[in-house]
Deep mutational scan, measured.
Amino acid sequence: GFTKEQQRLGIPKDPRQWTETHVRDWVMWAVNEFSLKGVDFQKFCMNGAALCALGKDCFLELAPDFVGDILWEHLEILQKE
Rank of each mutant, 00 (worst) to 15 (best):
Asp40Phe: 02
Gly10Thr: 09
His22Arg: 01
Asn47Gly: 08
Gly10Lys: 13
Pro64Asn: 06
Trp29Tyr: 07
Glu33Lys: 14
Leu60Met: 11
Glu73Ser: 14
Ser35Met: 08
Ile70Thr: 13
Phe41Gly: 09
Leu36Met: 05
Asp69Cys: 08
Glu61Pro: 07
Asp25Ala: 14
Ala50Cys: 09
Lys37Cys: 09
Thr19Ile: 02
Lys4His: 08
Lys43Asn: 11
Leu9Asp: 06
Leu75Thr: 00
Gly10Asn: 08
Lys4Pro: 05
Asp65Gln: 12
Ser35Lys: 13
Cys58Asn: 15
Trp29Lys: 03
Met28Phe: 10
Cys45Ser: 14
Trp72Arg: 03
Glu61Lys: 15
Gly48Asp: 01
Leu78Gly: 03
Glu76Met: 15
Phe2Gln: 04
Glu73Pro: 01
Glu61Phe: 02
Ala63Thr: 09
Leu51Asn: 02
Pro15Ile: 11
Val31Pro: 01
Gly55Cys: 14
Val23Ser: 04
Thr19Glu: 08
Glu33Ala: 10
Leu60Pro: 03
Cys45Gln: 14
Gln42Cys: 06
Lys37Met: 08
Gly1Met: 07
Lys43Val: 04
Trp18Asn: 00
Lys37Tyr: 06
Ala30Leu: 07
Lys13Arg: 10
Phe44Val: 04
Thr21Val: 12
Thr3Asn: 09
Trp29Ile: 02
Glu76Cys: 10
Val27Gly: 02
Met28Cys: 13
Leu62Asn: 04
Asp25Trp: 11
Ala30Ile: 07
Asn47Glu: 08
Leu71Pro: 01
Phe2Trp: 11
Gly48Trp: 02
Leu36Ser: 02
Trp72Asp: 00
Lys37Ile: 11
Leu75Phe: 12
Gln42Leu: 05
His22Gly: 03
Gly10Arg: 11
Glu33Leu: 04
Phe34His: 10
Val31Cys: 13
Trp72Tyr: 15
Arg24Val: 11
Gly38Tyr: 06
Gly68Arg: 05
Ala30Gly: 07
Asp25Leu: 14
Phe34Ile: 01
Glu5Lys: 08
Arg24Glu: 06
Cys45Met: 13
Val67Lys: 05
Leu51Gln: 01
Pro64Asp: 09
Asn47Arg: 07
Phe44Pro: 01
Glu76Arg: 10
Leu36Val: 06
Gln7Asn: 13
Asn32Leu: 08
Asp57Cys: 09
Trp26Ser: 00
Lys56Phe: 01
Leu75Glu: 00
Asp57Glu: 14
Trp29Val: 02
Glu61Asp: 13
Phe59Ser: 01
Gln17Ser: 11
Pro64Ser: 07
Ala63Cys: 14
Gln6Leu: 13
Gly68Ala: 09
Cys58Val: 14
Glu73Tyr: 05
Leu60Arg: 12
Met46Ile: 08
Gln6Thr: 09
Val67His: 06
Val39His: 04
Gly1Asn: 15
Gly68Thr: 07
